[in-house]
Computed example of a mutant assay.
Amino acid sequence: MIGITHTGVYFPPRIETAKEIAQRAEIPENVIVEKFGLVQKHVSDSSIHASDMAIQAAKPILEKVDPLSIDVLIYFGSSYKDYMVWTCGTKIVHELGLKNAYAFEIMNVSSCFPIALKVARDMLVADDSIRNILLVGGCKEAELVDYQNVRSRFMFNFADGGAAALVSRDSSRSRVLGSCIYTDGSFHDDVRVVGGGSKHPASLESVQQRLHFLDVKDPKDMKQRLDPVSVSNFVHVVQEAMAKSGSSVSEIDWLIPLHTKRSMFRELLDRLELREEQAIYLDHYGHLSALDPCIGLHLGQERQLFQKGDKIVTVSAGTGYTWAATVLEWLE
């Protein structure tokens, strides 16, 4: 049974509260809590990076399984890593002592965990020699937030941390079922870090112009195009993933989404006819790029929320824009 056997998370110790974010962004605290859906978030310092947080998240898993039993490591976290044009997966394999594993990376910003689950499942189906695939991700995107840039306001919930999940051929805990992924590339030019790429190489001017932070090209235009389709696309990938799993939306027991503003979270639940008690909302963690559904899954296990037979939908979306969902069946 191909499924997730273990998960792990890591959060840096420093906490930034809604009050502190409100002061930095010059926004009322109640707006941060009620609209942004953020009570607090974890923020790293200069001593730790995306690869380090991914390693810390994976360590508890390797206390339960033999590191030499890991065949593949897939990094699915933030593309904002320790260095540019650099694979942190190789560092993670080395630091964790995964001497029998090869590493590669898949990155699709915030949508990537449901995609990584599909890739891992498909690899295990296709190659009998693979037994265990370790998914790891790190996020240090709080560092990319410019609180004085009102164009990037919807990204003020970005936070830091690490997450990991072990996908195994012989899982008795869960089973990975169907997935659905949908891309609308018309949004490709809306959100980016302008400075540092080949179009705008790093320079004194790029630093002075604050081009090394997340930015939205035209927030009003993006909102006009995105608002009418975003929740509908979430619903579409959830419906299709459930259909591919031989089930319907009415059979969802748990929704594990990325962190969004409260209004979108509630609208999605309404459209899927789910109660808030059937979802995990990361208002004490914020948005950690692709890591959110993995973190929510870990929290659900810690809190012993899942029961045998539960259908759990991990769902996310990433700027560009790609929506993705993968279904799990809980076996314990």
Rank of each mutant, 00 (worst) to 15 (best):
M1C: 07
I4R: 09
T7N: 04
V9A: 10
Y10H: 13
P12G: 02
E16S: 06
K19R: 15
A22W: 00
I32T: 04
I32S: 07
E34S: 15
K35T: 14
F36H: 12
H42C: 00
S46M: 14
S51R: 06
D52G: 03
A54F: 10
K59R: 14
E63C: 09
V65F: 07
S69Y: 05
S69C: 06
Y75F: 14
Y80A: 07
Y83T: 04
Y83M: 11
T87G: 15
K91C: 00
I92M: 12
V93P: 08
H94P: 01
L98K: 10
A103N: 14
F104E: 09
L117C: 13
K118H: 15
D122A: 10
V125L: 13
R131A: 15
G137Q: 02
G137K: 02
G138K: 04
Q148Y: 13
N149K: 08
V150Y: 11
V150T: 15
M155S: 13
M155R: 08
F158G: 06
G161T: 00
A163L: 07
V167I: 05
S168W: 01
R169A: 10
R175A: 13
V176F: 08
G178S: 01
S179Q: 05
F187H: 01
V194G: 00
G195R: 06
G195H: 06
G196S: 08
G197T: 00
A202S: 15
L204Q: 09
E205V: 06
D215V: 00
V229H: 11
S230Y: 05
V231P: 00
V237L: 05
K244H: 14
S248Y: 02
V249F: 01
V249R: 00
E251N: 12
W254H: 11
W254A: 03
I256E: 09
P257R: 04
H259D: 03
T260K: 09
E267L: 15
L269T: 05
L272Q: 08
L272I: 14
R275M: 12
Q278Y: 08
A279P: 02
A279T: 04
I280D: 05
H284Q: 14
Y285M: 07
L288H: 06
P293I: 01
L297E: 02
H298Q: 03
H298Y: 08
H298R: 11
L299W: 15
E302P: 05
G309F: 12
V313F: 08
G318K: 03
T319R: 10
G320S: 04
W323H: 10
L328R: 03
L331A: 09
